[in-house]
């Protein structure tokens, strides 16, 4: 046991810098994912035919093994952190687009009827009614993406992206399995933490909404 922590202390610098790199990669790709996917999801609610196609394409992307995509990205962008972010960004899209799209379409039409009847324009309906009511679904999509991104980011190391994958990689190469765990454990904990945090956000967003549904 003591040697388990000794490994951590010895590789302290590596683990910490990898963790912060990991956080950075995840945060960046997720942020880009949200910036692209939420408006895309909203837009698609006005173009239902396009929506089917887009969701299908994103679905296919998400079934391609990440290692393949990483390889492709490496061929395009070269080694480093950018291809890693590009791939994670791509993966993050589907859950958020789908969450936004279905979240908005699942809203009971009576609210839209009321909103239109009051003389709200499209943008006002979106801001005042649709987004707040779809928020639980949107954040659920973001949470799903966050978990994917955090765990898959460990693969970024393979194309020189850095992050906790570096720690795992080094552990594997030197047959130091304690070090492998010091790479895997923080990534897992990070995923749990973010998932828990976002669950609280989801509960906040549906506070008054779900009670109405329950009635």
């Amino acid at each position: 046991m003591s040697s388990f922590f000794a490994v951590a202390v010895k590789n302290q610098e590596l683990i910490l810098s990898s963790l912060s790199r990991h956080l950075l990669i995840c945060a960046l790709s997720l942020a880009l994912g949200i910036i692209a996917a939420v408006p895309a999801g909203i837009f698609l609610t006005y173009r239902k035919k396009t929506a089917k196609a887009v969701l299908a394409v994103l679905g296919v992307i998400n079934t391609i093994p990440s290692i393949v995509l990483l390889g492709v990205a490496m061929m395009i962008f070269g080694l480093g952190v950018y291809p890693a972010i590009a791939v994670l960004f791509l993966y993050s899209l589907l859950p958020i687009v789908r969450g936004t799209y279905t979240g908005i379409l699942d809203i009971d039409p009576k609210y839209l009827k009321a909103a239109r009847g009051m003389g709200m324009n499209r943008l006002q309906i979106l801001r005042v009614v649709q987004l707040p009511l779809a928020m639980p679904a949107i954040v659920t999509g973001i949470r799903l993406s966050a978990i994917y991104v955090i765990s898959w980011a460990t693969l970024a190391a393979f194309i020189g992206g850095g992050g906790l994958g570096d720690v795992i990689w080094m552990g594997l190469q030197s047959y130091n399995f304690r070090l492998v765990i010091w790479g895997a454990l923080p990534a897992t904990l990070l995923a749990f933490l973010v998932s828990w945090l976002l669950n609280r956000v989801i509960r906040l967003t549906q506070k008054h909404i779900s009670r109405e549904v329950a009635q």
């Binding site: 009576k110 009827k113 009321a114 239109r116 009051m118 707040p132 008054h208």
Partner: peptide, 21 residues
């Protein structure tokens, strides 16, 4: 313009439809 028209017409829908949030 529908938006302008509706501003001058109050509408109580059958399903009530108060915004829950």
């Amino acid at each position: 313009d529908p938006v302008e028209l509706r501003r001058g017409i109050g509408y109580v829908i059958q399903e009530i439809g108060l915004f829950p949030h």
